[in-house]
């Protein structure tokens, strides 16, 4: 994954987070029932939070350039 792709995906993630932690999804999650004694709002907030973190980690860590290659070294592909 190129540096540019990662940047775009992280921006998309930011926008996703803005939507997740906002009206109206919070209203939907704020229901009265419970799952195993856990209220849906709590499950939703922590679940979405954890999901965002995992996605960030996935975007950043997947096929990260090796320790010797700087960020700039990722752009030119190998000839052939």
């Amino acid at each position: 994954m190129g540096e540019q792709d990662r940047g775009k995906r992280l921006i998309a993630l930011f926008l996703l987070g803005m939507a997740l932690f906002n009206f109206p999804l919070l209203v939907v999650a704020s229901a009265g029932w419970t799952v195993l004694g856990l209220p849906p709002l709590i499950l939703y907030l922590f679940g979405a939070w954890l999901g965002l973190i995992l996605l960030m980690a996935l975007i950043i860590e997947r096929r990260a350039p090796g320790p010797t290659a700087g960020p700039a070294a990722a752009s030119p592909p190998e000839p052939r």
């Binding site: 992280l10 921006i11 930011f14 803005m18 939070w49």
Partner: peptide, 20 residues
Amino acid sequence: GVAFLPIYLGPTLMAALWWF
């Protein structure tokens, strides 16, 4: 209740933009 959470959700979202 969950009113304490946005103080930590904001940094989480902002962290995504740290990239830039």
